[in-house]
Write a protein that binds this DNA or RNA. Structure first.
Length: 111
DNA sequence: GTGCTGACACAGG
DNA sequence: ACCTGTGCCAGCA
């Protein structure tokens, strides 16, 4: 059993957290990708799980489908990405976004 | 049971 | 690249 996580967590939430925790450095997954991989719920449900218990997993590796960072933690996330070597793609002048073409990852899909 | 809200995704302007 | 509207699903008043 996974220690450190609240027992109140539903099986779905536990599964989401497990997937997020399995994301290797330099890689990311979108909310929709996780939901689609699990085959249940939806992006919003994944977002809910992260909002509640995301503090126990690498939340910065879970971003929007377009590669944009988590609002309110952009600075923190960017620092993590640069440290982990996550494929970033500079915007026109200011701001960065994760290059989903490279950074997108799936548990069973090992390159 | 009904309605609103939310760490989203997608299409259109 | 940005903002707005609509759709999806689960939790809560």
């Amino acid at each position: 059993m996974t220690a450190g996580r609240p027992a109140q967590v539903t099986e779905f939430a536990d599964r989401v957290l497990d997937v997020v925790d399995a994301i290797p450095p330099g890689r990311v997954m979108s909310y929709g990708d996780i939901a689609e991989y699990l085959g249940q719920g939806g992006p919003r449900q994944v977002g809910r799980v992260m909002a509640l218990w995301g503090g126990g997993v690498p939340w910065w590796r879970v971003i929007h489908a377009d590669g944009s960072f988590l609002a309110g933690h952009e600075r923190e996330a960017l620092a993590r990405y640069q440290r982990e070597g996550t494929p970033l793609r500079p915007l026109g002048g200011a701001g960065y976004r994760v290059d989903m073409r490279q950074a997108r990852w799936a548990p069973a899909a090992s390159p």
